[in-house]
Write a protein that binds this DNA or RNA. Structure first.
Lengths: 345, 345
DNA sequence: ATGAAAGCGCTAACAC
DNA sequence: GTGTTAGCGCTTTCAT
């Protein structure tokens, strides 16, 4: 409606530069094996015409798309309630951009969408996929394997079945949990409780395992299942307080949970950290810094996780993308966590 | 490495079904004008071969991509610190998915990336673009106009220049601000302060205007500039308290700002809402519900904003996408806001 | 080092 | 209603 409907083609550039289409193609794709003067002429023609290659035509022959799908399978609204997702995407985006790849975002709402994603992936629109399959019972991994697209997963895969050696990137949930609990122990606490995350997610399971690594002999009543939400944290904290009024510390599976716990503790008149020390997980800034008192927590570098996933995938797609820095032979990469000390523990 | 490298083509399906490629194409694209028995035969062949159309080949001739770009230009980390962005994306994703369009995400980090985005858009990879240009001085709008791609903006465009009648979707920031302030007035407050957002964003300007609509005669010292962050809210609140110790209410430009203000008020021994009533904006759940006391605020339906943007764009791309429900002739659509009453005001 | 020519897989006129 | 045919814009042998 507005402007020139027809963008210039290779042909047009060739005509303008007085060379063949093949030569223009060579120049546009790096210019190897073309003599300087010609390169120059072609470059100028490209410039003058404002030529931009037609990606569809190119893909048709190269069978490359320079695009990767990011699949986020999260029926719950949780992903959207925290910045996790955004940070992860940012890391991914940075890495993909640096290698001239596009990011196609596939969000799924419930199981119905899984088939759609499977079809899309199988359709060969993208060169690879980055998948966040947050739940253990997801059908997605299977569909994705079926699609035959190179994939890197975010988070350890829970399904021990089938998917052998799936490449994944994860935070050191278990190690971080250990560090959290050890910190509480170091504070002299002895009645340490744990509010877990949603146990259908590996991160929650791993954090629970970390807790148990340190508190092997813990009173089983000191562990209550939460769901990664503040409401879950409140509920669990009440239960904990009712069961074990003598507890003196809480390790919450994430910061949101900790925030809920904190509220109940205040409501019940327990001082934090004097009566009860509280430690979270994630270091989700808008939450951890805003609680009262500010939350001591375990930080994971979310953005770096995303970046690493993208890097791993790009390397699989094209070995030339490999940095000199990385050479992991293992299918899984686990990123370290660090303790951030604030006021709650 | 794993399986059949060659996916079946139209040709193969045609051979299998014993018909021509054209017929297969017709069936695959809806099947109009093909007799039932043939349709059936082709469908079966497609099924058996696991045929999926090659999108690149199709785009090459149709010049459609069934994909739209979502451009998020946010040099600051702010976008990533709140769920705004995620909700918006979810709304967009739902709408696009419903119309079989893909979402290509373009995140920009600073000005350098703008050129890249412009090039991508001009490259004709996508049929349209949804743009969140959060700052007034962005070069992006110009580049996008230059790319000649149908675009819908998120948020009122600040640049009165050039871009005439740019299509946009925005929340009723001004009206929401008025409602907030009127609520405070209705509570009997008379010394009402306002902590603004970052004034290079139209949302902040509009909220300030709404404040002034109601408080035309307000003491100018009651308005302090913030930046949409908790830290900014703290700083502004301190300044406000120093200048006007007699203030009895605060309208914060967003919930994050309000959270910061709340902290300072508590620190200074002011009770909320008894001494000072506080109202925010956004109704960002993880923040608004977690503050102490929980925040009274103005809710905007972020997800719906995203959905509407996508709908508007799709309609422009193909009038058939128009729902019967919508028929806005105006270039801008403004979504209503509502007051959510909690405990802070 | 450069050009000519053959497709990549699909859709859309146009015949029949 | 169905088949035939001519490209869409590009890369890539293969000659030269």
């Amino acid at each position: 409606m507005t402007e020139a409907v027809t963008r210039p083609t290779l042909e047009a550039v060739a005509a303008r530069a007085g060379v063949s289409r093949a030569t223009v193609s060579r120049v546009v794709n790096g210019g190897d094996g073309v003599r300087e003067p010609l390169v120059e002429r072609v470059r100028r023609a490209v410039e003058e015409l404002g030529y931009v290659p037609n990606q569809a035509a190119r893909s048709l022959v190269t069978r490359r798309h320079d695009a990767v799908a990011v699949v986020i399978a999260e029926p719950e609204t949780r992903v959207f309630a925290d910045p996790f997702f955004a940070l992860q995407l940012r890391g991914i985006s940075k890495e993909l951009t640096a290698h001239d790849n596009q990011l196609v975002l596939l969000l799924t709402e419930g199981r119905d969408d899984h088939a759609r994603v499977g079809r899309y992936l199988a359709g060969g629109h993208v060169d690879g996929a980055l998948v966040f399959s947050l739940h253990l019972d997801d059908a997605l991994p299977g569909l994705i394997r079926g699609a035959g697209v190179p994939t890197v997963f975010g988070g350890r895969s829970g399904w021990s079945d089938g998917t052998p050696r799936a490449v994944y990137v994860d935070s050191d949930n278990r190690g971080g949990a250990r560090a959290a609990v050890r910190h509480l122990v170091g504070l002299g606490r002895t009645r340490i409780a744990h509010i877990t995350g949603a146990l259908d997610q590996t991160s929650a399971v791993d954090r629970l395992d970390g807790f148990r690594d340190v508190m092997a002999e813990a009173d089983p009543r000191l562990v209550v299942e939460g769901d990664f939400t503040p409401a879950g944290g409140e509920r669990a904290m009440r239960e904990l307080l009712d069961r074990c009024p003598d507890l003196d510390a809480v390790f919450a599976a994430n910061d949101l949970t900790a925030a809920g716990a904190l509220r109940v503790l205040r409501e019940r008149g327990r001082r934090v950290p004097d009566d009860v020390a509280v430690i979270g997980f994630d270091d989700m800034l808008p939450v951890a810094e805003q609680t009262d008192p500010p939350l001591t927590t375990i930080r994971q570098d979310i953005e770096e996780t995303g970046r690493l996933m993208a890097r791993l995938l790009l390397r699989r797609l094209d070995p030339r993308n490999a940095d000199d820095t990385d050479a992991a032979p293992s299918p899984g990469v686990v990123l370290p966590t660090t303790l951030v000390r604030r006021a709650s523990a």
